[in-house]
Design a protein around this nucleic acid. Structure first.
Length: 366
DNA sequence: TGTTATT
């Protein structure tokens, strides 16, 4: 088990780059709207926080121009951060003062001004290993700060030994080229007084997940559904103005109860429903509640990690060419198909909860 | 030897 020494030490404030006009909006020198005083980035959000809860929390401060909880494009899972753009810069300031450092479940959220988006700030996160166990987060920052502006830093610690450094950490620089210089300057070098050299390299990009990683993630999500929330009810994130917020699931389409541990057997035993059995090349799987924008690639991405997929099809409206909400996947092996169904049925894809089952003879009726 | 900071 791993925990974090600190996520809050490095605070970032971006100097506004625009010009404030009397009684008017902030206008940047190039004429584009300048949101540097209203746009915030929120980090270390609880995994299970929904867009609605996110909006509700930050909307309690003041009027929101826009906000977005950033999610994985494929799985729809929260990436643990989001953006809030307020109408009034004063509300952005207030949000930082009142919500930064707020403890939500096991996380301590960080609220700060968002830096202007640009390619140069992407992929600037470094993975550092071989650090002396005695090196603190501050020591590490000091070592790296000669190469640029540090946005975040952390050292991983062992939880069972109550906070002993694992000699592994992360450093995020403001700019990618700063991170590159730090690698050049520090990789393979011994910090002052250290016995061993440290390794410094770019951290794995979480958006480039392997099939195996995606599969693991899907299994974990499935397991969570089957065992219920990880934490005690009272530890779960609550908002006073969200009296009956559900966790992740907005609606429960059709006959499937929320979080119900539906098994293949219970599905096949439903009255009047029979499996069609292997048809031609393999087992046909019915996927329901796809978005109108869904395409074949999402089906490949979802089912591919579970085994051999021979065919996918998204059913579209003839005139609009939009997905009609469902599709089919053919898998060669029963075991893999069954595992895919067990893992993906009830899975949240973006705002939607998928229903996944073997295609049955009566699926289209009722 | 592994968290989740750029819409």
């Amino acid at each position: 088990m791993v925990t974090i020494i600190s996520t809050m030490e490095t605070q970032v404030s971006n100097g506004p780059s625009g010009t404030s006009l009397p009684n008017g909006p902030v206008i940047s020198t190039n004429g584009a709207a300048d949101d540097s005083k209203t746009n915030l980035i929120v980090n270390y959000l609880p995994q299970n926080m929904t867009q609605e809860e996110f909006k509700s929390l930050f909307g309690s401060i003041g009027e929101i121009e826009s906000c977005k909880l950033v999610r994985d494009k494929i799985t729809g899972q929260s990436l643990g951060y989001g953006f809030v753009n307020y109408v009034d810069p004063n509300d952005a300031d207030k949000a930082i003062n009142t919500l930064n450092g707020l403890k939500l479940q096991t996380k301590t959220i960080k609220v700060s001004y968002a830096r202007p988006s640009s390619a140069s700030i992407r992929d600037a996160n470094l993975y550092v290993s071989g650090l002396p166990k005695t090196m603190s987060q501050k020591d590490m920052e000091q070592l790296f700060s000669q190469y640029g502006r540090i946005i975040t830093s952390r050292i991983l610690v062992d939880q069972v030994t109550a906070g002993i450094s694992r000699g592994v950490g992360f450093i995020r620089f403001d700019k990618r080229n700063e991170a590159e210089e730090a690698i050049k300057g520090l990789n393979g070098q011994k910090p002052l007084g250290a016995a061993e050299p440290i390794t410094v390299k770019f951290a794995n990009n979480p958006s480039q997940k392997t099939g195996q990683a995606l599969l693991t993630q899907l299994y974990q999500t499935a397991a969570r559904r089957f065992t219920g929330p990880l934490h005690h009810q009272t530890q779960r994130f609550r908002l006073d103005n969200l009296l009956n917020a559900s966790y992740g699931v907005k609606s429960s389409p059709s006959f499937l109860p929320r979080f119900s541990p539906i098994t293949i057997d219970s599905m096949t035993s439903l009255a009047g429903v029979n499996l069609t059995g292997p048809t031609g090349a393999g087992w046909c799987i019915f996927v329901y509640n796809l978005s109108p924008e869904a395409d074949e690639s999402v089906l490949w991405q979802l089912f591919g990690p579970f085994g051999a997929v021979t065919n996918v099809k998204v059913i579209r409206d003839f005139t609009t060419n939009k997905c009609k909400g469902f599709g089919f996947v053919t898998m060669t092996n029963y075991d893999e198909a069954a595992m895919a169904i067990a893992s993906l049925n009830g899975y949240r894809l973006g705002d939607r909860v998928l229903q996944v089952s073997f295609k049955t003879s009566k699926q289209h009726k009722a």
